[in-house]
């Protein structure tokens, strides 16, 4: 659904995006992570045919971003960083205006507007001036605008940044539903919890370059090493030693607790467990130590740059 190849954008002497390659299929969510100014917005703007790539190509919903810009824009729903609402209009007028720009037939448009406003809890505020909306309401309305024409591709920049936890949950649920209905979604966010919940793939962008493109688990493994498992035992042992299988390393030991770093857990975890039991230890629990995406993210953005 979204395919970008060597996508590059230069503004005079600034290389904003440098050779980005992306692939997002129908029913997939790609989370674009990266520090401010890394090139996320520029990438999204190239994918919506607003910026013309300096080099490379991209196909969005089957249309070329350089040769078929109008068709690309008609197939994409975009939530921008600035929500861009007209303060003197009410929500209904605003959405009817954008619906007309997308040539949605009138009777269907009104129904669609009401359904979406209801879904995001804005139906009661439909006739209120947008200038009176709270920040979170504006963000929800901008999201409704992006979804209005049922686009097969969604490019969302920080969709929940201004929302209260309940509204953010509603939006995340909506994104899950959209993914199930075969939409391809690119999500730019700094909210790593959200990224972890929604992402099928994560692309980490730094100084215009994608430095990592993988699943969340793959990214953590690549940046933080093999997963860690903690065994809690009844005995207050200290300084347990044994011949561990290849790919398993004891990384920490405290009275009643042993922590291992395990490569290929499917094969090695049963071996470790057996070893513990054979050593006469009564195992109370054996579980993976949670590792935050934040840790992996920070490791990635602080990685020394390759020439």
């Amino acid at each position: 659904m979204i395919h970008a190849e060597d996508l590059t954008k230069r503004f005079d002497d600034i290389l904003a995006v440098d050779g980005v390659n992306l692939n997002v299929g129908a029913g997939q969510v790609l989370v674009l992570l990266g520090p401010n100014g890394a090139g996320k917005t520029t990438t999204v703007r190239m994918l919506t045919s607003i910026l013309v790539p300096t080099r490379g190509r991209a196909v969005v919903a089957g249309y070329d971003v350089i040769r078929q810009p109008e068709k690309v824009r008609a197939s994409v729903g975009v939530l921008t960083e600035h929500h861009g609402l007209y303060g003197r209009m009410n929500a209904l007028e605003y959405l009817e205006f954008f619906g007309s720009l997308y040539a949605i037939p009138q009777p269907h448009l009104r129904q669609r507007i009401e359904n979406l406003l209801e879904q995001f809890g804005l139906l009661d505020a439909m006739r209120r001036r947008l200038g009176e909306y709270s920040k979170g309401m504006r963000q929800k309305l901008a999201l409704v605008r992006a979804l209005l024409h049922s686009p097969p591709v969604l490019l969302l920049d920080e969709p929940t940044s201004a929302m209260d936890p309940e509204s953010a949950r509603t939006v995340r649920d909506a994104l899950h539903t959209l993914r199930s209905s075969e939409r391809a979604i690119i999500l730019c966010t700094h909210n790593l919890f959200e990224a972890e919940e929604l992402a099928d793939q994560v692309a980490l962008i730094r100084r215009g370059r994608i430095i990592l493109n993988d699943t969340i688990a793959g990214m953590k493994a690549a940046l933080l090493g093999p997963p860690e498992y903690e065994a809690r035992v009844v005995q207050q042992i200290d300084g347990w030693k044994s011949d561990l299988p290849a790919g398993v390393m004891l990384v920490a030991s405290a009275p009643g607790t042993l922590r291992f770093q395990v490569d290929r857990p499917q094969i090695n975890n049963p071996l470790v467990l057996r070893l513990l039991l054979e050593s006469g230890l009564d195992v109370v629990s054996f579980q993976e130590v949670p590792r935050s995406l934040e840790k992996a993210y920070l490791a990635a953005v602080n990685m020394p740059e390759h020439p």
Binding site: I50, A74, V78, T80, G84, L101, Y102
Partner: peptide, 14 residues
């Protein structure tokens, strides 16, 4: 400046 131009530019209009 008001940030409202981008949704318009994202529309399929030429």
């Amino acid at each position: 400046e008001r940030g409202s131009i981008e949704p318009l530019l994202n529309s399929p209009l030429m």
